[in-house]
Amino acid sequence: MQLTGKQQRLTIVLLGLILCSIATAMILAALKDSVVYFYSPTNLLEKQTIPERRVRVGGLVKKNEQIYTKTGVVNLFIVTDKKNDITVRFTGILPDLFREGQGVVAEGKIGPNGVFFADEVLAKHDENYMPPEVAETLRRSSKSKTGEPR
């Protein structure tokens, strides 16, 4: 079969695009671990990372306890992915969005006792946007159905 110039160029462009996508997919698959911005507590426990390596752990805040010390406020909170928990210790100002049930990403190192010593805590918000009144109605209706706050 004889291809015309136009058909030839079309084939080259299509082949090039396919090859480039395969190459990108392979590179991204190989880099998977460094492309993720944070690990979930489960990931982190599976990984058995070296204690001195800086990592980020992300999940939902389960419980936050503030301990007042001479040097300032120490936050001790549990980050969960609903399978595993990790306790995070952080001294400093928490972001505005930080609250129980909220997504957070903490950066720091794992201490010898399994406690995560964070020196930076970022809040992660979800994809839902609504006015406060709507959120309140939603919360109430789900409360009356399941007896538990959303």
Binding site: K32, V35, V36, Y37, F38, Y39, S40, G58, V105, L122, K124, H125, D126, E127, N128, Y129, M130, P131, V134
Partner: peptide, 22 residues
């Protein structure tokens, strides 16, 4: 991947997660 940026709000399987007023 795990990102700090939130997932898509509009073009997603369950329909938009943004209230109509927004």
């Amino acid at each position: 991947w795990n990102t700090l940026h939130q997932p898509a709000s509009l073009l997603r399987a369950d329909g938009p997660a943004i209230h109509s007023s927004m």
